[in-house]
Design a protein around this nucleic acid. Structure first.
Length: 521
RNA sequence: GGCCCCAUCGUCUAACCCGGUUAGGACACAGGGUUUUCAUCCCUGCAAUAGGGGUUCAAAUCCCCUUGGGGUCACCA
């Protein structure tokens, strides 16, 4: 049997991180089994602008490097891959169900249905359809049609059966079909409903494994019954638990962003995004929040980091493996090892995966990843010259493991412009302290003649100077750092000086010292 | 409320299916070392089987109940 899995997003304008995790599992399973992964667009609500609504979803897949074998843009043998274009298939299936007596036209009015529900509620019995339309004669139907009374198509659920399902993740699950109301499968306006369309599509697309979020588990008995009525080959089902908000068991939701900002685990992530978006002049929107995949791309996460984080959310390889590349996961992924319980999304752990993969990234790719942030923040100009690129590369080397996200390059603005932020408090403490301005001035003079202007000779010069003056080297180092970068943390101070070059270093020290008279310590 | 699902450190998880471990790893947190900053790196520590009943020589593991959490009950997907 050829494995064929699918992900069927509705075009909503953004890709939910939890949905991405589900899609990722379906993708991993297909790749692990050497099968196909299909993208089908569930766009039965056709009102919106498709390009705008679908764009971010496809972009999320592209960014993460999750390719699809059939679907939008790539086509395939079972298309079209948009539900809105598959009307004929649904009509044919509906006719088949009517002909075989598995579906019936229901002329009940909304008022009648509402009343039925109230009766069931009062009697404390489960609501089931009254099925009064079942007894209608052809003549009566004709009369209703003549009156212009509308009908919807309902699937006739066979009552009194125990329906069992062996879900690959959840195990054996059973339902009593006597408790299932007859679902509407085709609306009065002719449009198919999800439970019906998805069954028709999964069969026609020859989906072998339906891997989807667990909120669909309770839809599954209806879908199994529909498959049976249609005479389809039954796919295997695997219901993946949902992704919960950090530290909770509640489904992660775009509608709860306000709440998440206060969540201690989520807070840092939101704040980092706010800083970055401000610098690169990108507005924050719910579609670009930590609930959406796009957020991670926009603040400089690596696909490898996000994928590793998603992969370990509700799945594990063994008792110790945490770091996994995409190919490691493809090689080892099985649905049997997917955890049944919902998993809380953990931004800290995601960040630690990110740190790891950023460390592994070759320099050239770090440069390529940082450049767009520097240009967006107008720290360098476009087009990027070869020298600028070379300089950025040297800065990144200097930053070393401090660069965790591509956007972290923006914290090193002092390498790129003279108008950089200064930590005033630390500046006061380390530069404007007793005696330091004089020492700094004196050391500045030595800097003029240090040859060559390299890490080793600078270090040696400072060492000698501190020795002569009988002061701790640390004092000088701190003062030098603050007076040349404005920042108390960052790459080694000698690295900073070398990167800045002699002229800029001297100029910045002078500028810092000129403030001494304005603001006496 | 009916139906269905789920339950191990603060978090992600391993061990559960097929009973026997000082209940393991990672993140986070705390302390220490390296780096005269920060980050990295190394070491140490903290910390869990929801509760109650069975079955058994032996239960995180099998069974039942309770509690808690969640999903779903649309002419949404």
């Amino acid at each position: 049997m050829t494995v064929r899995t699918r992900f069927a997003p509705s075009p909503t304008g953004y890709m939910h991180i939890g949905g991405m995790r589900t899609a990722f599992f379906a993708w991993l399973f297909a790749r692990h089994m050497g099968g196909k992964f299909i993208l089908r667009i569930d766009d039965t609500d056709e009102a919106r602008n498709m390009a705008e609504a679908l764009g971010p979803i496809l972009q999320a897949f592209r960014w993460l490097g999750l390719d699809w074998d059939e679907g939008p843009e790539v086509g395939g043998d079972y298309g079209p891959y948009y539900q809105s274009q598959r009307g004929d298939l649904y009509r044919a299936a509906a006719e088949k169900l009517i002909a075989s007596g598995h579906a019936y036209q229901d002329y009940s009015t909304p008022e009648e249905i509402k009343a039925d529900r109230e009766v069931a509620e009062k009697a404390k019995t489960p609501y089931l359809n009254v099925r009064r339309s079942l007894d209608l004669s052809d003549a009566q139907k004709a009369q209703y049609d003549a009156e212009g009374r509308s009908w919807s198509l309902r699937f006739l659920v066979p009552r009194g059966q125990t329906l069992a399902l062996d879900d690959i993740i959840r195990g054996h699950v059973e339902w009593d079909t006597s408790l299932l109301p007859d679902p509407v499968i085709v609306r009065a306006n002719g449009g198919p409903l999800y439970n019906f369309a998805t069954v028709v599509d999964d069969a026609q697309l020859k989906i072998s494994h339906v891997i989807r979020a667990e909120e669909h588990l309770s839809n599954t008995p209806i879908q199994v019954l529909l498959h049976q009525a249609l005479g389809n080959e039954m796919p295997q089902f695997a219901h993946v638990p949902y992704v919960a908000a950090p530290g909770s068991k509640e489904k992660l939701s775009k509608r709860k962003l306000g709440e998440y900002r206060k969540n201690p685990q989520f807070k840092r992530l939101f704040e980092r995004g706010d800083e970055v978006f401000l610098k690169i002049n990108l507005p924050f929107t719910p579609e670009r929040s930590p609930v959406a995949v796009e957020y991670y791309e926009k603040i400089g996460y690596l696909p490898a980091g996000v994928l590793n984080g998603l992969g370990r959310l509700g799945w594990s390889l063994d008792e110790k493996t945490e770091i996994m590349s995409l190919s490691d996961m493809v090689q080892n992924f099985t649905l049997e090892r997917v955890v049944k319980a919902p998993a809380g999304f953990d931004p800290d752990k995601l960040f630690s995966f990110q740190s790891h993969w950023m460390k592994e990234l070759p320099l050239e790719q770090k440069v390529a990843g940082c450049l767009p942030f520097l240009t967006a923040a107008k720290l360098i100009s476009e087009p990027v010259s070869a020298e600028t690129r070379e300089y950025v590369s040297r800065v990144i080397v200097g930053l070393g493991d401090r660069l965790k996200l591509f956007a972290d390059i923006l914290d090193a603005a002092f390498f790129f412009q003279e108008d950089y932020p200064v930590d005033e408090k630390m500046f006061q403490k380390r530069v404007l302290k007793e005696g330091m301005p004089a020492l700094l001035g004196e050391f500045r003079q030595r800097l003029e003649s240090v040859e060559p202007f390299t890490l080793q000779s600078l270090e040696a010069a400072l060492h000698v100077f501190a020795e002569e003056k009988g002061i701790p080297q640390g004092d000088m180092i701190h003062a030098l750092r603050l007076s040349t970068t404005g920042c108390p943390v960052g790459p080694g101070v000698y690295d900073c000086l070398v990167l800045l070059g002699r002229d800029k270093s001297l100029a910045r020290i002078s500028k810092s010292l000129s403030q001494v008279s304005e603001r006496p310590a």
